[in-house]
Amino acid sequence: MKIVVIGGTGLIGSKLVKQLIARGHEAVAASPNTGVNTLTGEGLADALQGAEVVVDVANSPSFEDKAVMDFFETSGRNLLAAEAAAGVRHHVALSVVGTERLQGSGYFRAKLAQEKLIQAARVPYTIVHATQFLEFLGGIAQSGTEGQTVRLSPALVQPIASDDVAAAMADVALGAPVNGTVEIAGPERVGLAALVARYLKATGDPRTVVADAKAPYFGVELDDRSLTPGDHPRLGTIGFDAWLAAR
């Protein structure tokens, strides 16, 4: 089966392409680096020719409110139109657990707009909501840094390793469309500030983490439900310690 992975040269996309090829499928890594641009439409029709499934794991290069909205709306419209023309039978998109609860953030407003485009299109779909990636802990720490202090919310998170994300995305891509959303998360639920403190200590970073319930997470305040999945998510197998040891 031919499966096109939009964003196929990035963190999740590159791992997903390898997984799909290992399972015996034709996986095409589609990105501006390979001549496929969802913003301009360049290369889309050729890349999607003969594809049964498209998996969109691309992310905006800018998180500025207008830029991120333009990215997800424009690329979403172009991609879904090209899929309909090519007869694609399953559109799979990677999104974020808590998207609908975090609409004070321009990034999450853009992700919700992307999801609404998918839901309104003619292509059968599955939206995968993932929790925060363990690989993003350094960036999360940086987002809350002032001098040598990292101020972060103590709210609960359930982070997932990118290898587990890629495995879940492969399973969804090879399954039937659910025309709805599935959630994936890591095996451990922990406070965000506490987790980042563990990460900094383990990596020899001298910064001090301060737990602050008012500290914003990319523009929004969190509570214990903001970034955690519902009752029956698919759980990854790689916890923080195993992930760190493998780095």
Rank of each mutant, 00 (worst) to 15 (best):
residue 224 D to Q: 12
residue 168 A to W: 02
residue 212 D to H: 09
residue 138 G to E: 13
residue 204 G to I: 09
residue 171 D to I: 07
residue 232 H to V: 13
residue 173 A to P: 03
residue 223 D to F: 10
residue 19 Q to C: 08
residue 2 K to H: 08
residue 85 A to I: 12
residue 18 K to Y: 01
residue 78 N to K: 07
residue 161 A to C: 11
residue 121 A to E: 07
residue 83 E to L: 04
residue 42 E to W: 08
residue 147 G to Q: 11
residue 158 Q to Y: 10
residue 33 N to S: 15
residue 201 K to D: 14
residue 83 E to F: 07
residue 72 F to C: 03
residue 114 Q to P: 01
residue 65 D to E: 15
residue 238 I to G: 02
residue 71 F to E: 00
residue 238 I to V: 13
residue 99 T to Y: 00
residue 184 I to Q: 03
residue 20 L to S: 03
residue 189 R to D: 01
residue 225 R to F: 13
residue 219 G to E: 02
residue 9 T to H: 05
residue 63 F to G: 01
residue 225 R to Y: 12
residue 94 L to S: 01
residue 5 V to Q: 00
residue 179 N to F: 06
residue 81 A to Y: 04
residue 164 D to Y: 06
residue 145 T to S: 14
residue 153 S to V: 07
residue 86 A to H: 11
residue 112 L to F: 03
residue 143 S to M: 13
residue 43 G to Y: 06
residue 26 E to Q: 15
residue 155 A to K: 05
residue 104 G to E: 11
residue 115 E to Q: 14
residue 225 R to G: 10
residue 15 K to H: 13
residue 179 N to I: 11
residue 121 A to D: 14
residue 44 L to D: 00
residue 55 V to I: 13
residue 40 T to E: 08
residue 176 A to P: 11
residue 185 A to Q: 04
residue 120 A to E: 14
residue 220 V to Q: 06
residue 120 A to K: 11
residue 179 N to D: 15
residue 92 V to E: 01
residue 146 E to N: 14
residue 191 G to T: 11
residue 11 L to M: 14
residue 213 A to E: 15
residue 141 A to R: 04
residue 226 S to Q: 12
residue 87 G to R: 12
residue 238 I to L: 10
residue 192 L to M: 15
residue 216 P to T: 12
residue 65 D to I: 08
residue 128 V to D: 00
